[in-house]
Every structure is written in C-alpha cells, then in structure tokens.
Design a protein around this nucleic acid. Structure first.
Lengths: 270, 270
DNA sequence: ATATCACCTCACGTAACGTTAGGCGCAATA
DNA sequence: TATTGCGCCTAACGTTACGTGAGGTGATAT
C-alpha cells in the first residue's frame, strides 16, 4: 500500500512547486489541504495532487490564479472552457507577435553593430524605433499612399532591410560630418548620390521621379492635406529623428538644391 | 521657431506615455526633467524627448527599467550593448518557445473539445500536461530508449498527434465505463483492440511485439534499472494519471490478460 | 466669490510569489 | 539535561511598472 498523505515539503518535492507557493495557494483558497488537528500542519492527499496538476496546467495555459480559482470549483470546468481557451489563444498570439518583432529588431541591430564599430546613440534609437513600429508605420501609410506604391515604400526582403539600415547609418554619419558645408560641395553631392542610389536599389524603384511621384500627394484636396499632416505627425511621434535641428535644416537645404532640377521638371509637367 | 518646452501633459500627449509614467520615471531617476523654479512644475525639453525615446526603445527590447537606467548614463551605451542584446535575445527566444508550446496545446485541446462534447476534467488535465511536457518527456526518454525507437515512441505529425489524443480520450472513457468487468468481456477486448490498433497506427509500428520490445529494458543491468525507475518516477511527476487506483489496477489486470500470450512468447524466446 | 484646470506630492493596490523573522514541538546529541 | 537542529507554522515586507485616487496649490474663467 502506498503512502496516502504527504507533509508540505514532501508534497512540494514530489510536485516540483515551492512550499511558499503551496502556502500561497492555501491562503488564496485555491488549494486548501486538510490540517492535522493536533499540530495544525497541512496534510496533502492524492486528490490534492490532482488538483495541483489542474492548477499547473491552467497556469501553463497562461491563466491568472483568479481565473483558475473559478475553474477549480467543480461543475464549472467545461462550461465555457473552450471560450476561455480561445481567449488565451489570442492573447498568446499577440504576445508572440510582439516577441517576434523585438527579436527581429535585435538581430538586425546586432548585425549592424558587428560591422560598424562606432554608432551614435541617437541613430541607433531611431533605427530601433523604426523597426519597432514597422508594422504600424505601414498601416498608417496605407491610408495615405497608393497600394502599388506601398510595396515600394519599404524594403521588402530581410537582406534589403539590412542593406538599407546600414546605408542609413552611414548617411546619418555623413550628415553629421558634413553639416554646414555648402550644397555644391563634392562630398555633399556624393552623400546624396549614395543615399538616393541606396533607395533606388533597396526600394526597387526605377528613377528618382518615381520617388518624387509617390510623395506628391494631392495637395489641392484640403481634406487630404489634413490627413497627410496627421500622418506625418504620427510618424514623427513614433520615430524620433536622430538629427539636430541645425542638421535637419541643413539637410533640407542641400536636398532641395540637389532635387531642384527634378522638382522643376515635375512642376513644368503639370 | 518651434516651441522649446513642454508641460508634463503636453509631453505625455506628444510621446504617447502617461503622466503617471513620467512621474514614475522622474521618481526613479530615469528621466529627470528640469523644474520651473517658481511653480515647481516639470519642464520637458527636446533632449528629454530623445531620452524618452531611448527608454521606450530599450523597454520594447524587453529590458527592465533598472537595466535601462544603467544605459541612460552616457558613455555606457555601447560598451556591452551587443552582449545585452544577445542576452535579451535568448530570453525572448525562450519566452517565445514557451508560448508556442502553450499555443499548440490550446489548439489541440480546442480541436478535441469541439468534437467530443463531454470530457472528463482529469483526462483533459492529463492530456494538457502531456502536451506541456512533450519536449521534456522526449528528452527524458532519450537517456533510456534507443534512438531509433524514439521516433516511434511519440506521434510525429500533427495529424497523428490529434488522432492519438482523440483515441486516448475514448480509451480513458471506456476504462471508466468498463472498470470492474471481467477481462474476457467482449467490450473490454474491443477496448484494448482499439487502443493497440491506435498505437500501431499513430506510432507507426508494425506489431505489438515491437511495442513490447521497446519497453523491455535491460533489466539485468542493475544501474540501468535504477535509471529506468527514476525515469518512470519523473514521468509520473510530470504527467498525472487520470485514473483512480482501482481503475489502474483493473486496467493492469485486463492488460496482462490481453497481452498474456504475447509476453509468454517473449519469455520463451529468451 | 467661486468653479475649474493643471499641476504637485503622498500613498495604496496590483500578481504571484521570494525572502526573511520569530515561534512551536519533537528528536538527536554533548 | 541543556542545546542544537529540523520541519512546520504565521506574519509581513519586497518585487515590477505603473494605475488610481486623495488632498493641496496657484492661476484662470465665470
């Protein structure tokens, strides 16, 4: 005949949970074992082991102890158990997605940092924020940019993403170094050349005109303009710029200078 | 010229975090904005926004605020940042694996419950525990069972798993219903027939002899016997039986009776 | 004069335990 | 026999990252 009862430490050992946890479950009325009338010690029986397994199982499914307590009352087990499982499922799926996004961001960042030795904090944060909000960013863009253009708006393959990010890194570095130089300085021109070539390559576009085209929203439409404004605001909120205001101002100046002929071209067409 | 400073509520709105969170970060010395000397109100500047983005980014990577605080001191950012990222990565991978196991268990359980209307708690818990510890179970078995046999020991495909679990469900139901009946009762024989057919099918075995073979460990080897004993104990700890002691005793009796000729056969061979 | 606002500082509540801290009865040991 | 140690008990604080009031202040709007 097997031993019928366990002391708390025996029970803990044989089930793998801590004594404190058993105390806690008792206190919270989730698993209340009998007591030795004389000593007051907890006395666990086989039935308690079954109950504890039930608890552990539900916990494994991600339920809170409060939820579990409900399900520990007999008769209530399978009433809406499937519903509860479905709910847990969607929660877990969400968690998993978050983790996957974080994992990808980490892996991409590690890769980036392995090659580049010295990376600016601000740039790194900006990149990470961009990765973090990749999905949201695309969703926001959906309302504002044509569907066909969407595919070209963001790098698609993992490789493209990494190439793009690496290029972005050097671009930002260049901006910081060259900031203040005149727009027609050869290095500045080189920088912008590199940058737009990067975009053309990783975003699978055919020409700079195409980029310009995507960004030329219907500005006559007043309502649309508001949406575009809100869109840009939201993106700015999600993804901080790694540049100072001076750097941004300078960049805009040299970019306008660089793009000048192109924009004029566009204007002339309309 | 843009506005340079923000009140706490403005700052909260424009960054998307709560006022309370900002209070908290201030209190914990993670993000301490300047104060208005007169009113004592917090005054956030653009630099603070950059810092907050850094915080949010690191939080997104799964770091604790304590860890983040370390990285908020300048100069310490990229010292061992890659190492930290790697550490986070392995943590996240672990979490993800747990979630995946739970998700699979949930999905299989939901599937099971959709078809069977009335399922016993104990059986369900046992099944869930089995799913939960599938990996551990296999690892434990590795030390004890030959590698070639391992592949046959557990159902391999998702479909096989589901068929197996469904069969197990009806098997347990039968045991409860038939418990007490004589070993030569036709329904009992039917039950065992069904069960072993299930095993043969889902475990891809050719004969009952093969099953018997797998389980016939080297019992002469004293040391091995101990390991087998420990193995069985651990399995029992991980996966509770859904049967009462009576049911188990009865099952063992009728099984011995059913397997009788087979075992005799084995004995005679040696 | 008063109501409202935006801000402030406490300070408690949350989940699921981990971790002392102090006390009781029983057994082995010096 | 006194002490030590073991296993058990209860009580209570610590943990994380905030949410949610409670109560008070100065400035503005009615």
């Amino acid at each position: 005949m097997k031993k019928e009862t366990f002391s708390i430490s025996e029970f803990a050992k044989s089930t793998g949970v801590s004594v404190r946890t058993l105390h806690y479950y008792d206190e919270k009325k989730i698993l209340k074992p009998k007591r030795d009338k004389i000593t007051g010690h907890r006395v666990y029986e086989k039935e308690d082991m079954i109950q504890l397994h039930k608890i552990m199982t539900l916990k494994f499914l991600g339920m809170s102890l409060d939820d579990i307590k409900e399900y520990m009352q007999p008769n209530t087990f399978d009433l809406n158990f499937v519903d509860t499982l479905r709910l847990q499922e969607s929660k877990l799926i969400k968690d998993k997605e978050q983790i996957e996004i974080a994992l990808e961001a980490i892996q991409r960042t590690v890769h980036l940092l392995e090659n580049e030795k010295e990376v600016d904090h601000a740039v790194l944060v900006s990149l990470l924020a961009s990765m973090q909000n990749e999905k949201k960013q695309q969703e926001l863009s959906k309302g504002i940019i044509k569907d066909e253009a969407m595919k070209k708006m963001f790098p698609q393959t993992a490789k493209d993403k990494m190439v793009f990010e690496k290029g972005l890194l050097t671009f930002y570095k260049n901006v910081r170094e060259l900031c203040g130089k005149p727009a027609d300085h050869p290095e500045v021109k080189q920088m912008l050349d590199d940058f737009y070539r990067l975009i053309l390559e990783t975003l699978d576009m055919d020409s700079l005109e195409e980029i310009a085209d995507i960004f030329s929203f219907n500005m006559e439409d007043k309502e649309n303009e508001e949406r575009v404004e809100a869109y840009i605001q939201e993106i700015e909120r999600l993804i901080p710029t790694p540049l100072t205001e001076q750097e941004e101002a300078w960049l805009e100046k040299v970019t306008t200078n660089y793009m000048g002929p192109l924009w004029d071209d566009e204007e002339r067409k309309n």
